[in-house]
């Protein structure tokens, strides 16, 4: 199995109606049923809460200003790109889309 990041781009970030949020809650289970696995997931606060650091300069806002903001990222295991695309297509989207990208590495740092 290979690992892929699925980046969710949404026009209004995580300001999502309850039915879309509910769909997100069942996503991991649906991915498992389809032969894949969600191994990590994170939902991000909106762009206005971001702080960017360029050298010593600290600025308000995200590094790249885009029409859609990254609302969340989850990491999946899939057989290959076709499988990963099929799984990523299950992501509930309100006004935007997803990007699938293979990972070089994914590690969770355990506290000892």
């Amino acid at each position: 199995m290979a690992r892929y990041a699925v980046m969710i781009f949404e026009r209004n970030g995580n300001d999502l109606p309850p039915e879309v949020v509910a769909e997100h809650m069942t996503l991991a289970g649906r991915i498992t049923e389809a032969g894949g696995k969600v191994i990590a997931g994170m939902a991000l606060q909106e762009n206005s809460t971001a702080t960017s650091i360029r050298g010593d300069l600290i600025t308000d806002g995200p590094w790249i200003e885009t029409k859609e903001m990254i609302a969340g990222i989850f990491v999946i295991e899939a057989r290959d790109l076709d499988h990963a695309i099929a799984l990523a297509k299950m992501t509930p989207i309100l006004d935007g889309g997803v990007e699938v990208r293979p990972l070089i590495d994914f590690a969770v740092v355990e506290e000892s």
């Binding site: 290959d80 790109l81 076709d82 990963a84 699938v100 990208r101």
Partner: peptide, 8 residues
């Protein structure tokens, strides 16, 4: 190679 586009 990197994105594992399958040869199927």
């Amino acid at each position: 190679a990197l994105a594992r586009i399958p040869y199927v």
